[in-house]
């Protein structure tokens, strides 16, 4: 491939500047700040930071609460991903088969992705609230049975459902696109070969979806690690008994409520490394594609 060479020009620099400025202010600067805090400790009554090396990380990693947070984050990530992807796949298959009204469903299913996470959490408050939500009807039958501010498993279930509901849309779009990119003649050939719709799905559509499946798996896991803050904050506030204290929520709680900037920064760095590792895996899989012809 031939390379294009451009002379340095002030116009080019000026055109790039806004984008670079945004990336710098909202990504590099905070990241650098987090790194700085992660390796230093602020003196109790001000007066600058002192270098403490890996002490912050040691402290975080030896904190049982932190490992509790990691545990619930992993549970949340896996549960949300499995729930969201299986829902998305089911819906995509129905829409792909063009059952009656599929055009309306398609739009309706994509919408949740446009809803901000805190709004999702708030909306699910109306569903799960033990006193006023839809689930409060359970309590009229069996008083006190449903209360997500009291029972950890109920709180986890609630954020998993809310999180999955939000993520279904994204996976749905990709699954549908992948299903529709399978040439129609393949499905027809399988129909001629005697395979019924369910058989065709198992033998043909699902194997051909494998690349999309891996891509979405990584994206969904990454998303549920980083994008869950709004839901947790509005729905459970991390409780009860730290049951929904996801990693990303704990960073906020430790840093801005507990004023432990250094501990929170160390946790941020760990989370960042985790997301980078997942992204790396994702790029490895995206490269592998099934060719149809």
């Amino acid at each position: 491939m031939r390379r294009a060479y451009f002379k340095f020009s002030w116009i080019a620099a000026a055109l790039l500047a806004p984008q670079l400025l945004i990336i710098f202010v909202f990504f590099y600067w905070p990241s650098a700040q987090a790194l700085y805090w992660a390796f230093t400790l602020e003196q109790p009554w001000g007066g600058g930071n002192t270098w403490v090396g890996l002490d912050n990380f040691r402290k975080v990693l030896s904190d049982p609460y932190y490992w509790g947070s990691v545990r619930v984050s992993v549970i949340y990530a896996l549960a949300t991903t499995v729930l969201a992807m299986s829902m998305a796949l089911t819906l995509a298959i129905f829409v792909d088969r063009q059952l009656a009204g599929y055009k309306a469903y398609r739009v309706a299913i994509i919408w949740p992705y446009a809803v901000a996470a805190p709004a999702v959490g708030l909306a699910f408050q109306f569903v799960f609230n033990p006193g006023a939500g839809i689930f409060s009807y359970i309590n009229t039958i069996s008083p006190g049975w449903w209360d997500l501010s009291k029972y950890p498993w109920q709180a986890v279930t609630a954020i998993v459902i809310a999180g999955a509901w939000k993520q279904v849309a994204y996976s749905f779009v990709f699954f549908l696109a992948a299903l529709q990119s399978i040439p129609r003649s393949l499905t027809e050939a399988a129909a001629m070969d005697g395979a019924r719709p369910l058989r065709r799905m198992i033998d043909l559509q699902l194997p051909l979806l494998t690349p999309t499946f891996f891509f979405l798996l990584v994206i969904n896991i990454t998303d549920s690690f980083t994008d869950s803050f709004g839901i947790v904050d509005t729905l459970t506030g991390g409780g009860p008994f730290r049951a929904t204290d996801l990693m990303v929520y704990k960073i906020y709680a430790d840093g801005f409520r507990g004023f432990d900037y250094s501990g929170a920064a160390a946790q941020s760095i760990i989370l960042m490394l985790l997301v980078m590792a997942l992204t790396f895996v994702q790029f490895r899989y995206v490269e592998k594609r099934v060719h149809y012809t």
Binding site: A189, M192, T293
Partner: peptide
């Protein structure tokens, strides 16, 4: 049985 224009072989 049908032979398709683009062969429609199962790629996997």
């Amino acid at each position: 049985a049908m032979v398709f224009q683009n062969y429609a072989l199962y790629p996997h």
